[in-house]
Design a protein around this nucleic acid. Sequence first.
RNA 1: GUGGGAGUAGCUCAACCGGCAGAGCACCGGACUGUGGCUCCGGAUGUUGCGGGUUCGAUUCCCGUCUCCCACCCCA
Length: 425
Amino acid sequence: MIKAVRGTRDLLPPETALWNFVEATVREVFRAYNFQEIRTPIFEETQLFARGVGEETDIVSKEMYTWEDRGRAASEKGQSLTLRPENTAGVVRAYIEHKLGDRGLNKLYYIGPQFRRERPQKGRYRQFYQIGAEVIGPASSGSDKPVRDAEILEMLATLLDRLGIRNWNLEINSVGNAQERVAFNDALRKALEPVAASMCADCQRRATTNPLRVLDCKVPEDQPIIEKLPRITDYLQEESTRHFADVRALLESAGVPFQVNPRLVRGLDYYTRTAFEFTHGALGAQNAILGGGRYDGLSEALGGPPAPGIGFAMGEDRLVLALQEQTPNIVKAPDAYIAPMGAGTNQAAIGLAKALRQAGLVIDLGDESFRLKKSFETASKLGARFILIVGENEVRSGEFALKNLATGEQTTVPRAELAAKLQAS
RNA sequence: GUGGGAGUAGCUCAACCGGCAGAGCACCGGACUGUGGCUCCGGAUGUUGCGGGUUCGAUUCCCGUCUCCCACCCCA
């Protein structure tokens, strides 16, 4: 038997209804903040991710689906292509390519699949879905202002509330600009040298490979050491410090609860200044539901004009998982099940079904060969509110037997009044 | 990529020391030929993930492999 490949999966009803609910809510909320949708290709030149996300990140160095495309001529070497591992690089590429800044398109959102070749785990798949938004534009558009950061965070808090996600937690930090990050990294490396040997095995390795990750260590014995390590906030210059302070003040004005987490670091190279993460308790080790931050130098890194920006990516798989644990299914049951009965009654039934559907009702239809008992069983199983019997008697008289399956009440209704009757009750 | 656990009917899971592969739910038919849910009777479930090995005999023991789950690395 051929099965879905490792790390991919089929989304089946009724779960798909939850996905549609999430996406519809996202579109509605984002629209209120004047974001518009962008759809970028699912694969891009490998170089885009190498330069945009960072050569040294795990994503680029070992988690991408990359292949060499066929050259146009037999002698020509094909270009290296990659299934997108995230969507920000693609959006910024499109921003540059179509000069979106000049067209005033500064607020964009996307919903779609991304691909990373990781070991699958709950809430972590090789084809996974992300919802994200980016505010990007020339500095003159205000895209570098603290109010943009606060506005996006407030939008996310509103979205999670609207989705009915309870117990989310927002942590923010500032990781500084490019120069400040380098200075902090050096200081951290130096501070770790004498103490690393007394830390856990993971930290000993991180101390040289990725000092920022040491701050993320959860081993209790290491905490006293980590407390004494330099903090990023000590390495922020006046401008970054003020930016961060402004963001915090604006969040308070907007009524968005948050915690400053000086240890919050982000994995992708392009992040600057504000970094944030929303977490949710019920997701195990994969507790981050969305994360993001500012990326003021990304456009230049990709050969574009200066265009400060801020954005986030939300794991839709995990969002749905969190919702499933707290909400029952939301599929709307059919309003009526139509049961034709007797040779030729299908003809009347299909026309009737069409008319009722056009009136906005959800209608399912049986077949004239079914015994009435089977039709009742099916209607009950589907959870239909009513069963409408289209037998030979009904077709002849133009009046139909309509039974409320919950109350058992049955009435005879003329064809012209069926839609109104079903809508009213 | 690393470590551990698990894969048996559509679903949830049993099967003792290696001896005919089972139950509940769901499904189909009937009791009831124009009235569901409840009840009763009957029925079909299957490459025991896949491939190999040991054995008279393997769901069971061994090896390999695939997938899922948990954790690590990393990250949304």
